[in-house]
Write a protein that binds this DNA or RNA. Structure first.
Lengths: 234, 234
DNA sequence: AAAAAAACTTGATCTGCATCAAAGATTTAT
DNA sequence: ATAAATCTTTGATGCAGATCAAGTTTTTTT
């Protein structure tokens, strides 16, 4: 399970860098931030922000796991990004002339965010060049994450995509090959861009082939190399 | 053909804002830029940068049209973005720890670019906060463009996707409903994420239904509203 | 603890679109 | 101008994966 392997597969919904850009602020800036910032907690499943709503603020994820997605008229959501702590929701609404959220955000788990208005955030970018460079890095990374998912969902087929999702969970969230599967089949299906039935079929197939083990809601990737192979071939 | 309609359809490969961030530099910074910058011309079809190659420089498109795409092992390319002049190639390779291009770039038309090393570019970001804010805006826009295409190619089906491409060409590139169709069926297919045969079939169908007119390599969108409707329904 | 609801699995069918194939049109080379 | 190569169109076939349907398990409610 080398990081090198992970980086090649361009597919994961989660970025690799920890987005701790707040560390770069000086005490005065931190003070400003503190005075302007509000902390909000969301329960699992609650909507954090809604596509189309006025984007007057950014949200920094401090704890939990957030799904960033686009809503379609058909009711099917397109998951763009999954954000663990230290990521920033709404950065791409920062660009001029764009005053609404392009995406919705929902809590996968109980989540705590810090809300900051865009004006203050822009002020910090202006006043602190290291901070600004870090924000650019963050946006660049979000770009890479979305492009990777784009590639994965359009070029690979179901087994490859699903292998990708499992590897992503193992590598980026739980950081071990055996992990608790909090997500429902429906949520997995949404992330992998396929039907619930396909998820069920692929899981049973993976079990049959001894690729994974699934007991008491814990998933164990038994053969990491073959799983990686499947994710690569598509 | 209102801009409002255009903005709703989240599908176009081309951004709307002109990325003239260079205007924000002062004379000293421009001098630095000039001394460091090299201009390179590419012929139609030539590769400007290659996925996986070391990303030591950025390229500012000054003239022409550039395709940004990911290469897959199957030979099929995924078009992420189409950049007219005043866009910057390689911004998303700016993030720390990422030293290779994630995408390839190829000239659709004869193209002139200005090449600048990332170190100098980062220096400019640090020294000029307006410039840095503009770069953030640009990256945010690229994010939106890619997400829109992601949505379009995964949620809509062939007719909707193809209508989108035609509208994108009309609105963003040629800025009129009748325009020269320089792109081959193969290139159109690549942009719309479908086979060449599907493009041919859809075009004849659109002609039959009097939605478009195609003579002497000029395409005319006869019924903009219905085309828009098709692009929306998917 | 029983009943109701939701989540999951498995098989059967349907369909959008790619692929294959072959003919016609256009461009490029000779 | 003719031949060769490439591009485009149109029809026939095949397939991955969605949808439909029905049964099973798990979770929630009462």
């Amino acid at each position: 399970m080398t990081e090198n392997q992970t980086s090649k597969q361009h597919s994961c919904a989660i970025g690799s860098s920890s987005a701790s850009c707040m560390e770069l602020l000086n005490s005065q800036e931190l003070e400003l931030l503190d005075s302007k910032m509000v902390e909000v907690s969301y329960r699992k499943g609650e909507i954090i922000c809604k596509q189309g709503a006025p984007a007057t603020q950014l949200m920094i994820v401090r704890e939990g796991l957030v799904k960033i997605y686009m809503e379609s008229n058909t009711g099917e959501n397109l998951v763009l990004h999954i954000m663990p702590e230290m990521n920033i929701i709404g950065l791409s609404s920062l660009f001029e002339g764009n005053n609404t959220y392009q995406f919705s955000a929902q809590a996968y788990l109980d989540t705590r965010v810090q809300v900051i208005d865009t004006a203050t955030f822009k002020h910090l970018i202006r006043s602190n060049s290291s901070f600004s460079l870090k924000v650019i890095g963050l946006l660049a990374e979000y770009n890479t994450v979305i492009s990777g998912r784009f590639y994965c969902l359009t070029q690979k087929q179901t087994y490859g995509r699903f292998a990708d999702v499992l590897l992503c969970l193992a590598n980026r969230i739980y950081k071990q090959q055996k992990f608790p599967l909090h997500l429902s089949r429906k949520e997995l299906a949404e992330i992998a861009g396929m039907s619930v039935e396909s998820v069920a079929r692929i899981l049973t197939r993976f079990k049959e082939e001894q690729l994974i083990e699934l007991e008491c809601k814990h998933l164990n990737i038994l053969d990491y190399n073959r799983m990686f192979e499947i994710s690569q071939k598509g």
